[in-house]
Lab assay of single mutants.
Amino acid sequence: KEQQNAFYEILHLPNLTEEQRNGFIQSLKDDPSVSKEILAEAKKLNDAQA
């Protein structure tokens, strides 16, 4: 469930490039146990690119 939530949120971050988004999603698939950390990174990058 946590992985699904992170997946959904990353898909809807407006400021990520397609490449960045795909990278985060691939990381989620590779290691779902760190989905919280991956989501935090994605949000940080999204904010930095706002």
Rank of each mutant, 00 (worst) to 15 (best):
K1R: 04
K1L: 15
K1D: 15
K1A: 15
E2V: 02
E2R: 01
E2H: 04
Q3G: 02
Q3V: 03
Q3A: 01
Q4N: 05
Q4V: 07
N5F: 05
N5P: 06
A6M: 05
A6G: 04
A6Y: 05
F7K: 08
F7I: 12
Y8W: 06
Y8L: 14
Y8P: 03
E9F: 12
E9L: 02
I10W: 02
L11H: 12
L13F: 08
P14I: 10
P14L: 09
P14W: 07
N15W: 14
N15V: 02
L16K: 00
L16A: 00
T17E: 04
E18M: 10
E18H: 11
E19I: 03
E19C: 04
Q20Y: 01
Q20L: 03
R21V: 06
R21H: 02
G23Y: 13
G23C: 06
F24Q: 00
F24W: 03
F24R: 00
I25L: 10
I25S: 05
Q26C: 05
Q26Y: 09
Q26K: 03
S27L: 13
S27P: 02
S27W: 11
D30F: 10
D30Y: 07
D31L: 04
D31T: 09
D31S: 15
P32V: 07
P32T: 06
P32W: 14
S33A: 06
S33T: 14
S33L: 13
V34I: 14
V34E: 10
V34W: 14
K36I: 07
K36V: 10
E37R: 06
E37H: 11
E37V: 08
I38Y: 04
I38M: 03
I38K: 08
L39A: 13
L39H: 04
A40C: 04
A40F: 11
A40S: 11
E41R: 07
E41V: 13
E41Y: 11
A42Y: 01
A42I: 02
K43G: 06
K43F: 07
K44R: 05
K44L: 05
K44C: 03
K44V: 11
K44T: 03
L45V: 14
L45G: 02
L45E: 08
N46F: 01
N46R: 01
D47R: 09
A48T: 08
A48F: 13
Q49V: 09
Q49L: 11
A50Q: 13
